[in-house]
Nucleic acid binder design. Structure first.
Length: 509
RNA sequence: GGAGCGGUAGCUCAGCCGGUAGAGCAGCUGACUUUUAAUCAGUUGGUCAUGGGUUCGAAUCCCGUCCGCUCCA
């Protein structure tokens, strides 16, 4: 039996290298178990869990527990083990909670007690027993039956410090989840946030939909796509950079309020704020505009904060963020002036000045074709964005960088578009959608020109989308919210990798 | 892409102005009938990320590479 195991191992080069005496000893124990019983049984059915036991019985006195003889049956992973001769204590982890078990030779008999002593930290155990309280008042299960449910062959990280190594926390997230309850809590909060958003939108008669992840023409955002290939169709496909153009096709189709929470893929660098695949909420609402979208943005962020944290005063990396007050609304130039008093409005309306300023700050020269609005936006990104700690909507994005947004009725150079910034980061982006097919065609052509002059983030011409618009799309408000960044904000996480289970890392062989 | 920091036992870390690698936890053996990161005694375990170089001698100094973290572009 043991020989079989080792020969299997040698055929798996990965496990070969990191086998050590601890694993070898545990494999031997497993072989021993295999020879006498079913090593991985699946019939144990827990009737209780640690969390509920604590909340139901945690306040009962020693006497109450002793008199009632409360029988329980739970399963969990052994995290601590203290053998003291003829009796032992161990801690089982069951979900987010832990409960202590008390094992005595007197109660179990010699054989079972010896079995228990053979069990290792990390093993999954099933336990039956009755509740009591120890001298120090800790709710504990006095074990009458104990069963190994799943043998752990690899030792867990150190019991006190847990798993600290960042790389290992990301590559072996399951270990992080076993060892670090804070990490576990972050992902539970993430799930709650997404659930809150669903609830809020469904209450407002939104329909949750799914649109293609593989696009024959990438669209909906200015970003570099991942390219893949479909063999049977023998065609190039792109992983989507945004679902926007498909969701708006659904608006054309008369699904008046749609949303999608799903992955986007952008072939760009990694950072504490960027993962190549990330989760976006995108929603579209017919007969609405960007102002309604700003209101909805505030609603969503407040509701998720209340549901996840129970407060609208959020602490992020040592700073207090106030989500309660109306979010500030500033145009690009207003925000630059507010946070950079050295500039005047005259400066900001002077392309030459902006150009020189940008050269000074970035050491690179802006493109000759950049309009005044684009230059203002570039200066905003350099000087102001990072300072927008409290929630701030930035309005009036230039037409040139907003090829899918509706032009302002009063100023043809800008669009009815906003971005929301919190803790110096873009969190949301929304606009009144461009529903004029002829104008959209012109915008696409401009993008194609840019692509031809070397901009690999420019959009493609999507004739199919134009065709859809030509059937008539209602005027519409659209909104995108970066879910990972929202989760970062609400879980006080410094890196996007801390809110994605399996962040992208370089592969190691 | 650039800069800084890091990679030592299964885990958490020390050792880094060069002299053959250490602690705690985990493991193993033994003691222990209410422990709480149990305790006590003994003990196993390392190609110091990797490849070169300098040197009588390298975990330690130098260079390259890989992986990670942070900042910048």
């Amino acid at each position: 039996m043991l020989d079989n195991q080792t020969s299997e191992n040698t055929s798996m080069p990965q496990t070969q290298t990191d086998e050590n005496h601890i694993i070898a000893e545990r494999r031997q124990k497993l072989a021993q178990i295999r020879s006498t019983e079913i090593a991985y049984p699946n019939s144990f059915k827990p009737q209780n869990n640690a969390h509920k036991l604590h909340s139901q019985y945690g306040n009962m006195s020693h006497e109450e527990l002793d008199n009632n003889s409360i029988a329980v049956k739970i399963a969990g992973r052994m995290m601590l083990k203290r053998i003291m001769g003829k009796v032992s204590f161990a801690t089982l982890q069951d979900g987010a909670s832990k409960i202590q078990i008390y094992v005595s030779r007197e109660k179990l008999g010699d054989e079972l007690y010896l079995n228990f002593k053979q069990m290792d930290i990390g093993d999954l155990l099933g336990v039956c027993g009755t509740l009591f309280k120890t001298k120090t008042g800790e709710l504990t299960i006095a074990v009458t039956e104990i069963k190994l449910l799943s043998k752990s062959l690899r030792p867990l990280p150190e019991k006190f410090h847990g798993l600290v190594d960042q790389e290992q926390r990301y590559r072996q997230r399951y270990l992080d989840l076993i060892m670090n309850s804070e990490s576990r809590q972050i992902f539970i909060t993430r799930s709650q946030i997404i659930q809150s958003i669903r609830n809020l939108l469904v209450e407002q008669n939104y329909l949750e939909v799914e649109t293609p992840m593989m696009h024959s023409i990438p669209g909906g955002a200015t970003a570099k796509p991942f390219i893949t290939h479909h063999n049977a169709l023998d065609m190039q496909l792109y992983l989507r950079v945004a679902p926007e153009l498909y969701l708006k096709r659904l608006i054309v189709g008369g699904l008046d309020r749609v949303f999608e929470i799903n992955r986007n893929f952008r072939n760009e660098g990694l950072s504490t704020r960027h993962n190549p695949e990330f989760t976006m909420l995108e929603l579209y609402e017919s007969y609405a505009d960007y102002k309604r979208m700003m209101e909805l943005t505030e609603q969503i962020i407040r509701k998720t904060a209340m549901d996840a944290l129970g407060t609208l005063k959020v602490d992020y990396q040592g700073q207090q963020i106030d989500l309660e007050k109306d979010f500030e609304r500033l145009t690009i130039t207003q925000s630059i002036l507010k946070y950079n008093p050295e500039y005047t409005l005259e400066n900001l309306n002077n392309s030459e000045f902006l150009r020189n300023e940008l050269i000074k700050i970035t050491k690179t020269t802006p493109s000759d074709t950049d309009s005044l609005g684009v230059l203002q936006l570039l200066l905003f990104e350099e000087t102001t964005e990072a300072k927008l700690f409290q929630p701030t909507f930035i309005l009036d994005y230039p037409l040139d960088v907003s090829p899918l947004a509706r032009q302002s009725d009063t100023n043809p150079d800008i669009t009815e578009r906003f971005e929301l910034f919190i803790v110096g980061r873009e969190l949301a982006n929304g606009y009144s959608e461009l529903n004029d097919p002829e104008e959209q065609a012109i915008r696409f052509k401009k993008q194609v020109e840019q692509m031809e002059s070397g901009n690999d983030e420019a959009m493609h011409y999507d004739a199919n989308y134009i065709r859809a618009l030509e059937y008539g799309m209602p005027h519409t408000g659209g909104l995108g919210i970066g879910i990972d960044r929202l989760v970062m904000l609400l879980t006080n996480s410094a890196s996007i990798r801390d809110v994605i289970f399996f962040p992208q890392l370089r592969s190691v062989d």
